[in-house]
Amino acid sequence: MIQSTEQAFIGTCNKVFDMTDENKKGMSSNQLKFIISGGLFLVAVVILIISATRGTAEFFMTVEELQQSENELQGQNLRVSGAVLGESIYFDTDTGLLHFTIAHIPADEELATEEGELSKVLQQAVNDPDNSRLEVIYEGAKPDMLRDESQAILTGQLNSEGVFVAKELLLKCPSKYEEALPGQAE
């Protein structure tokens, strides 16, 4: 009984993959079992990947891009990076929400890795009044690294008022560790 079902299954597979006796040369039914079960498993993994990507992938955008297509992007998962404006940081003790504003950083300068370069980019972004800005709210502790001219990488969604509701908040700081030489000598 089991064997006949199995043979029927292999028969079907042969039809599906067009495996007539000639081109199935060298492949035993034992190997076929491995290939089919492994293949089924991998198909399941691929389906998992596709559904996860549909549900949770985030579009990485600059502040400017975000504001240009504000209406279309509502409800989408987004990831945005910008320079933090120090004076805008405010923790609302009643609601437990952290408010701050970020300024646009050009996409190609986001990856600045050279020593001191990032801090220059961030400084420019913060001090340019014409730069696009984005209001952010975040529920959670005020991170230690959130301060003026730090780079915030946010994940979340835009609400109907165009405020970015961040679920995750990652910060990069051009710290003093980047300075190559000490300022003071003995």
């Binding site: 993994v45 996860a52 990507t53 949770t56 985030e58 579009f59 955008m61 990831r79």
Partner: peptide, 13 residues
């Protein structure tokens, strides 16, 4: 467009 995946993506798979 750069599309990134976060913890939710990894966890669900």
């Amino acid at each position: 467009t750069q599309v990134t995946v976060g913890p939710a993506w990894y966890e669900s798979i």
